[in-house]
């Protein structure tokens, strides 16, 4: 493991050097306690202490609207060309929950048949993580799913040691950049400080709901027909906020658009949500998840049951976004507690 050190007052130089090479995005404040990942040119625009952004960094991996195809109907036979718009972007300040989210998406889009659009775009992204030394707020449940600590998935990873950042270098790409700006190597005292910080974190970060995470999938097996889903469904607006903001939700739709010449056009892949009324409706009109309760249950199973069976991991990163964003106050931690309670019977 390679570590380098960056003095805090040097952060601006770091960002500016990076911005010379590629577009840099980082958390910036939107007011009212809201943050977003957006382009920055200097360090003073960045909110280093931020509550998870409205949308997770998945928006750079799978854009909300992604062109997949260009077509031209003007000739005798239509022409079509696969489209792929790529941009080199450095994403700075990615919390460990969001790193876990990116890892989940990587697994999904790497599963055969693989999604080339996603995989090729991912190669253009330079990921710089940032450790949370304390909780962002009461919605987070990162310790439950063990995403409060770094588990890879980044090129560089920053840990705030007070007056300086300790930078863990995880890839050659990361190494090349750190070398290019001559960052000093970490000394033993830096490593001791890191160890001390991690010890401190153990005291702060504790299983948020007091439920053994390993047992959640089997608990869910028992409560599939429980009334608790109806209670959640009663509150649900079917607005799709919980899935849009989720770092591991990847459901999508495909839509064709035609230009005003009515001859040329393109196909977009757009984000979709299993919470929308029409999501599971077929052309004949039958809706296979017609109740809000079914859709909310589906969401929870897609985080804690289905991906465990399939990929052996949770697709919840504990970021808390779904609960934070729900206007009606549907709270994932509360749901899990109820699942644990109900599954006892």
């Amino acid at each position: 493991m390679k570590y380098h050190v960056l003095e805090k007052e040097q952060l601006n130089c770091f960002i500016k050097s990076l911005a010379k090479k590629m577009k840099v995005v980082a958390p910036i404040s939107k007011g009212h306690g809201n943050y977003v990942f957006g382009e920055v040119k200097s360090a003073d625009e960045i909110s280093l202490n931020y509550v998870p952004t409205i949308l997770p960094p998945k928006k750079y991996f799978m854009p909300t609207k992604e062109k997949m195809l260009d077509f031209d109907l003007s000739g005798k036979e239509p022409k079509d060309t696969a489209a792929l718009d790529l941009e080199e972007i450095a994403i700075f300040g990615v919390h460990t929950c969001d790193l876990a989210g990116i890892q989940c998406l990587n697994i999904v889009f790497n599963e055969r048949p693989r999604d080339y659009n996603y995989l090729l775009r991912k190669e253009k992204l330079f990921i710089i993580g940032l450790e949370c030394n304390k909780y962002c707020d009461e919605y987070a449940s990162c310790t439950l799913v063990n995403s409060h600590l770094p588990n890879g998935g980044y090129d560089l990873f920053f840990t705030d040691l007070g007056d300086r950042f300790l930078i863990n270098v995880n890839t050659q790409k990361g190494e090349d950049f750190v070398e290019s700006i001559d960052l000093p190597k970490a000394e033993p005292k830096d490593m001791t400080a890191l160890e001390k910080l991690r010890e401190e974190k153990k005291k702060i970060f504790r299983n948020e709901i007091d439920v053994d995470p390993k047992k959640i999938p089997e608990m869910l097996d028992k409560v599939y027909n429980s009334k608790l889903w109806e209670k959640v469904g009663e509150k649900c607006l079917s607005c799709g906020n919980c899935t849009n903001v989720c770092p591991t939700c990847y459901c999508f739709d495909m839509e064709d658009f035609i230009n005003l010449d009515l001859k040329t056009g393109y196909r977009l892949r757009t984000w979709d949500s299993c919470q929308f009324e029409t999501f599971a409706t077929v052309a004949g009109g039958e809706n296979f998840r017609s109740q809000r309760s079914m859709r909310q249950r589906h969401r929870v199973y897609r985080k804690f049951k289905f991906p465990v069976d399939k990929f052996n991991r949770f697709f919840c990163t504990g970021c808390g976004r779904c609960s934070r964003t729900c206007m009606a106050g549907i709270n994932l931690k509360e749901i899990l507690k109820e699942v644990a309670e109900e599954s006892k019977f």
Binding site: H32, N34, V36, I54, L237, C239
Partner: peptide, 27 residues
Amino acid sequence: DKPVCAECKLNENCCLYDKGVVCLGPW
């Protein structure tokens, strides 16, 4: 046939309810 929130969230607007304002987006 989905609420305005679906688009609003993708535009990363600060939720009007966070600002204490009644918004009809959810319906």
